[in-house]
């Protein structure tokens, strides 16, 4: 159990803030009263309610994203003490053991910052769309049960289906680089979204999407579209960009076997490329 007697009354938090997209970022120090069982979310809640820096300067609350606080929604990803993780499971006691001086919060660096710790991760969902990560069914009408699936298959697929699109694997990936576009003054929202999508499509999809391809290509019905999915992985920005640094699997909060998925996708695309070439 955390020994509360040795804990300080207060601790300091350094936040890398940014007022808007493309604005310059700056560090801000906050002082938060120590309470037992705190996580970074509760720290940010205290900061929001104080709205005051360590020097007593009145500031706007730090913006951040969160939702479930149980590490199943993927919203609260940020870089805490230099390492990407979910803010909800980043416990203050452990962070203080890691780095005594203060807690350091930064937004993810691979996605455009919207404000402070809030980033725009639409590119991830575009990746899922590009990978056709779904089961194509004839109808949602009552057609009886789905295919029988063995326990082994379920046990292989379940871990992959836990991916919550948090983006940790992408933040830690040296091959995944930031794409930030600016909407033109006369550009409509739809036109901008379209331009974004086509840019995203040419850039690396990342481990999360590759793993989803393997999830669906392992499903008895979804594998009908297996070749289309593999083709998407062989298109620009596909699996070939992977540099095998294997950071993805090390930082994944759900411990998804991402590198196994990547290697399996490597094998599948090898076969696909050869059969495609020789017909």
């Amino acid at each position: 159990m955390a020994d509360t007697s040795s804990k300080p009354d207060h601790f300091e938090v350094r936040v890398l803030r940014q007022d808007g997209p493309q604005a310059s970022s700056y560090w801000e120090r906050h002082r938060v009263r120590y309470e037992p069982d705190m996580n970074v979310i509760s720290v940010l809640q205290r900061i929001a309610s104080q709205s005051q820096t360590v020097d007593g300067k009145e500031v706007s609350p730090v913006a951040w994203e969160c939702n479930c606080l149980e590490e199943v929604c993927g919203a609260c990803t940020m870089v805490v003490n230099g390492r990407v993780r979910q803010a909800c499971t980043a416990l203050v006691d452990r962070l203080m053991a890691e780095q005594e001086s203060d807690i350091e919060l930064q937004p993810m660096s691979k996605f455009p910052v919207q404000r402070d710790l809030v980033v725009e991760r639409r590119r991830m969902f575009r990746g899922l769309e590009k990978s056709k990560a779904w089961v194509t069914v004839d109808t949602y009408g009552p057609m009886g049960a789905g295919p029988r699936i063995s326990q082994t298959e379920q046990e292989n697929n379940y871990p992959l289906s836990q991916c919550m699109s948090c983006g940790c694997c992408l933040e830690a990936c040296p091959q995944y680089t930031k794409v930030e576009l600016v909407q033109g003054d006369s550009e409509s929202d739809d036109a901008f979204a379209e331009r974004q999508d086509s840019t995203f499509d040419g850039e690396f999809v990342g481990a999360h999407a590759i793993s989803q391809v393997m999830l669906f290509n392992g499903h008895p019905i979804a594998k009908n579209d297996a070749n289309e999915r593999l083709d998407s992985l062989m298109a620009p920005g596909g699996i070939q960009v992977c540099g095998n640094a294997q950071n993805c699997v090390a930082v994944c909060p759900k411990e998804i076997p991402l590198t196994t998925s990547i290697a399996r996708a490597g094998r599948a695309t090898t076969v696909r490329a050869i059969t495609k070439f020789f017909g």
Partner: peptide, 20 residues
């Protein structure tokens, strides 16, 4: 096309990525 990040993520495989 890549951007090594061994400072933040000093995993063995990541060091090898950069060494490669």
């Amino acid at each position: 096309s890549g951007l090594p990040n061994n400072g933040s993520y000093s995993y063995f495989t990541n060091i090898r990525y950069t060494l490669q």
